Amino acid sequence: MAPPQKSDQQVAAEFTSYYLQRATKEFAEDLDKVRSADDFKNDALQIIVSALQQGTTMFSPEEQRRIVTAAARPANKA
């Protein structure tokens, strides 16, 4: 029996979380440099998160669903 279909909102939320995890991992060094800059203020953190979240708009709802579904699958063992 197949699991119930997730709503578009659920998929979008899961995709955003997945995307942010991947982006922060990929840009970890750069983000650390920004955070350690002398002129960095804590309120800038929300701006950075918002900027990273905007990257999710590059993906259609169908692509987001495909990525979320693929990310949820356990890795195949050969």
Rank of each mutant, 00 (worst) to 15 (best):
G55P: 02
K33I: 02
K77M: 09
A13H: 06
P4R: 12
A75H: 04
K33M: 10
D32K: 15
Q5R: 15
F59Y: 14
A70Q: 08
A75D: 04
S50A: 13
Q64S: 01
Y19A: 04
A28S: 15
D32C: 06
A23W: 04
T57E: 13
A78V: 08
P4L: 12
F27V: 02
L52W: 02
Y19M: 07
F59I: 02
Q54R: 15
T24K: 13
A2G: 03
Q46F: 13
Q21P: 00
G55W: 02
P74T: 09
E26Q: 12
P61M: 06
N42C: 01
L31R: 03
M58L: 09
F59H: 04
R66C: 00
S36C: 07
E29K: 15
R66P: 00
Y18R: 05
D8P: 04
Q10D: 14
Q53R: 15
L45C: 00
K25L: 14
I47F: 08
D30V: 11
S17Q: 14
A75Y: 05
K77A: 12
I48M: 10
K6A: 05
A13I: 06
Q9H: 10
A75G: 04
E62F: 02
I67P: 01
S36H: 09
D32V: 12
D30T: 15
L52T: 02
S36Q: 14
L20N: 02
Q64M: 14
I67A: 03
E62L: 10
Q10W: 08
S50M: 12
M1E: 12
A12E: 10
T16M: 10
D38R: 06
K77C: 06
A37F: 07
R35A: 14
R65A: 15
D30K: 15
A37N: 09
F27A: 09
R22F: 01
E63F: 03
T69W: 04
Q64Y: 02
G55C: 05
T69V: 07
T24N: 04
L45H: 07
Q53N: 12
T57G: 03
S7M: 12
Q5E: 14
P4Y: 11
R35G: 06
P4I: 12
L45D: 08
V11P: 01
N76F: 03
L45T: 07
F59R: 03
S17Y: 08
E62K: 11
D43K: 12
F27P: 00
S50Q: 12
A51Y: 01
Q54A: 09
R65Y: 02
A13Q: 14
R73V: 03
P3W: 06
A78Y: 03
I48H: 03
A2M: 10
Y19P: 01
D43R: 07
F27C: 05
K33H: 07
K25C: 06
M58C: 00
P3N: 11
I67N: 01
E14V: 04
D39I: 07
Y19V: 03
Y18W: 13
R66V: 00
R22P: 00
K25P: 00
F40L: 04
Q64H: 02
